Simulated assay, not measured.
Amino acid sequence: MSESGGSIALGTPARMPEFSLQDKVILVSGAARGLGLVQAEALLEAGATVHALDRLPEPSPAFHEVAKRAKELGTSLHYHRIDVRDVPNLNKIVEAIGNEHGRLDGLIAAAGIQQEIPAIEYPAEEIDNILHINVTGVFMTAQAAARQMIKYGRGGSICLIGSMSGTIANRGLICPAYNSSKAAVLQLARNLASEWGNLPPSPANTARPSASPTHQSIRVNSLSPGYILTDMVDALFEQYPERRRDWPQENMLGRLSKPAEYRGAAVFLMSDASSFLTGADLRMDGGHSSW
């Protein structure tokens, strides 16, 4: 059917091909549920094969529904149980994924935890724990992915999930360690982008007569959401009902975001649609931090 007939989807050779993730292999950490799972589903819809990494013994029931839908889309969703603090096993899993497909094209690092503890009372071991997961864990996941991207000589795209809280102090929300960890994630993305943006060709690939000697690029960006209305946040509103009233008033759109509103950002950042974007923070907070 003709393109003018309106039946050809975006992200195909006929319309907006730069958004297509066909044949790409992408990792999403923290994808057993929540934002990570929603973004994984968007990547599947764009044609990617997705490997989810999470520390939960079993992913959420919604995960299995998405995995079933992936088959209908002609692709697949896989689950790997791993705590990002377990670096040796993290590296083994990511390397095995690269070996299975002969490539690794993208990573969305969404694994993280949040705590509300007043600074004057914050135990040192709790600070160490949140930084270990939110910063070191993200760093090690990006490192493991980048090694495979370099190994196969295809480059790739990495998105680190930050937060508007990496830039601002949230009024009425006492989470100094979390906010500091997200500020570190934003800075980490910039530094990785500067190191990995113009890499020399992989020796393993240039050894082949048919290989191109051109440099390869790994793009690294961060995505900073605002407040997201999830089941967890909804439960939090039961404990702090004033937040249900106040939080929507703190941004320019007068409402909270939904996980599905970050689907497009995931596809954009993983696809060639963002091919000249690196070292950037895509802040999607409804204007919260722009007052």
Rank of each mutant, 00 (worst) to 15 (best):
P203G: 02
L104W: 03
K92E: 10
W291Y: 14
G98Q: 00
L269M: 12
E3M: 13
V220F: 13
N205E: 14
D86L: 04
S275D: 10
I158Q: 04
A184K: 03
S274W: 00
R81H: 03
R171V: 14
K151Q: 09
V38M: 11
L37C: 06
A32I: 07
Y79V: 00
L131P: 09
V84N: 02
C159M: 12
T167H: 15
A42N: 09
K71R: 08
H132F: 14
S217N: 07
D246P: 07
P203C: 04
T136A: 09
K92I: 12
S180I: 02
V38R: 03
L186I: 14
T206M: 05
R15H: 01
I82S: 10
L35V: 05
I127A: 15
L35P: 01
R33W: 12
K24A: 02
V38L: 02
W291S: 15
V185R: 12
V233E: 09
M1K: 02
E41F: 11
P61V: 11
R15K: 13
A273L: 02
Y122P: 12
E121I: 06
Y79D: 08
D231T: 05
P213H: 11
G166H: 06
G36W: 08
S222P: 05
D272Q: 00
W247S: 00
F19D: 00
S180C: 10
N198P: 10
S180T: 10
S2G: 12
G137F: 06
R81F: 02
I150L: 04
L90H: 04
M1I: 05
W291A: 13
R33F: 08
P61G: 11
L56G: 09
G47M: 06
G155A: 05
G197W: 01
Y240K: 15
A204T: 12
D128N: 15
N89C: 06
R244P: 04
S181D: 08
T278L: 01
I108A: 10
P13Q: 00
E18D: 11
P248D: 06
I127S: 03
M164F: 10
T278G: 06
W196M: 07
K71T: 09
G106W: 08
A124D: 11
S274D: 07
Q143C: 05
S275K: 04
R55M: 10
S210R: 02
G102K: 08
W196E: 06
H80I: 07
R103D: 05
N221G: 13
M232L: 08
I117T: 04
G279C: 10
